[in-house]
């Protein structure tokens, strides 16, 4: 092996497939890069926060229409956030007296009820933090070398006596 395998260029490290996978499902990008444990921990952490958001704030805490700016953060979780919003918009909203689509207030006929106060704030916050953390993970996956390549670099470095 030649010495230049140790010094990878930016292009060699850049991995768009890992980035796309990381966005499609939290942790999948790192799994693809050969780091299954890291991927599982990322997936567990991001989904813990996202489903924590829905558990605390109800499905109304993920709302692309009424809470647009919160959703900008939540969208970082990927298709799961968009699917949750789609279910919310299509299955749980009703037309109110002004003709607008709204999550109904608590009541016997409501399939899901409007989230207000601390529950809504905390639910929205959990979801937005989950999304922003996953964006960090996507960026990390984009620029992290595959584990087999790093092992090769380390072994070449060790045999040539240079630091990795």
């Amino acid at each position: 092996m030649t010495h230049h395998t140790i010094h990878q260029s930016a292009d060699e490290r850049f991995n768009p497939v890992a980035g796309v996978l990381a966005y499609l499902l939290p942790g999948l990008g790192h799994w693809y890069l050969g780091e299954a444990k890291r991927g599982l921990l990322i997936g567990a952490g991001v989904l813990w926060l996202f489903f924590g958001a829905v558990l605390i704030g109800g499905i109304d805490s993920v709302d692309r229409v009424e809470d647009k700016w919160w959703f900008v953060g939540q969208a970082g979780v990927g298709p799961i956030a968009f699917a949750t919003d789609l279910v919310h918009q299509t299955q749980f909203k009703v037309v109110d007296s002004r003709g607008q689509l709204q999550t109904p207030p608590p009541g016997p006929d409501a399939k899901a009820s409007k989230s207000i106060g601390h529950a809504n704030e905390i639910g929205s916050l959990f979801g937005a933090i989950a999304g922003m953390l996953n964006i960090m993970c996507v960026i990390d996956a984009l620029w992290r070398p595959r584990i087999d390549r790093r092992v090769r670099i380390r072994s070449v470095s060790a045999s040539e006596g240079t630091p990795a």
Partner: peptide
């Protein structure tokens, strides 16, 4: 997952612990 969680008054701050744990895990 459908309705907002009923929180007894003043207990909302307890959600800080799972939030901090999730951030640290990721």
């Amino acid at each position: 997952f459908l309705d907002p969680m009923p929180m007894p008054g003043g207990m909302w701050w307890l959600t800080l612990a799972p939030l901090a744990l999730g951030i640290a895990v990721v």
